[in-house]
Amino acid sequence: MIFDWQFAWDTLPKLMAALKVTVAATVLGMAVALALGLALALARRSRLQWLSWSTAGFIEFVRSTPLLVQIYFLFYILPGLGIELSAFATGVVALGLHYAAYCSEVYRAGFDGIPRGQWEAASALNLSRYHTIGRIIIPQAIPPVVPALGNYLVAMFKDTPMLSAITVLELLQTGKVVGAETFRYLEPLTLVGALFLVLSLISAAGIRGLERRLQKWVAQ
């Protein structure tokens, strides 16, 4: 089997279009994961016992069940509950929920890394709990965990092919379709892999840059 460069070149536009779907799912899913993950981490720390415990239970549940099961579950169950979402939107919600559970654990590590003295100084200045968390704790807790959050961004990106299970025409699914139509799988699947590789490397570099910028107030 010989790699047909011309065929690969002809296939590329289709794959690039599908790549947009994959990237959109990742970006939106990560936005959900980052925001919801922070909310979960804060709820987990809440002084309200019922909230803290139910959040811990939810996080454990999500982390202990496969992403694919969660994707199927949302896709087939949500419409029955009167929530009609497109396959793409369902996929974004599933990725977001799943990774929110992981991100919340990362945020938690960030919060745990803040010295007690910071909370006490905030109290001594009479800052409200809202301002203490929003102005003192979160800005210090997040920069150190950006690399860990970035790992989950790349992991989520690589999990997007699972959305093909609920008919989302993302990158891998499109590669397979091209293969099925032309009986040539080598070129499209190689390109799919290469595209994942290139984008993963770019995101990793972007995260390192962000990390450096966020750490500017730390001693050189």
Binding site: P115, G117, Q118, E120, A121, A124, L125, I136, P139, Q140, W217, V218
Partner: peptide, 14 residues
């Protein structure tokens, strides 16, 4: 009431 601490507890990001 206000307080000054042994280890300063300044906010490092400000």
């Amino acid at each position: 009431v206000g307080m000054v601490f042994q280890h300063f507890n300044l906010f490092p990001h400000m």
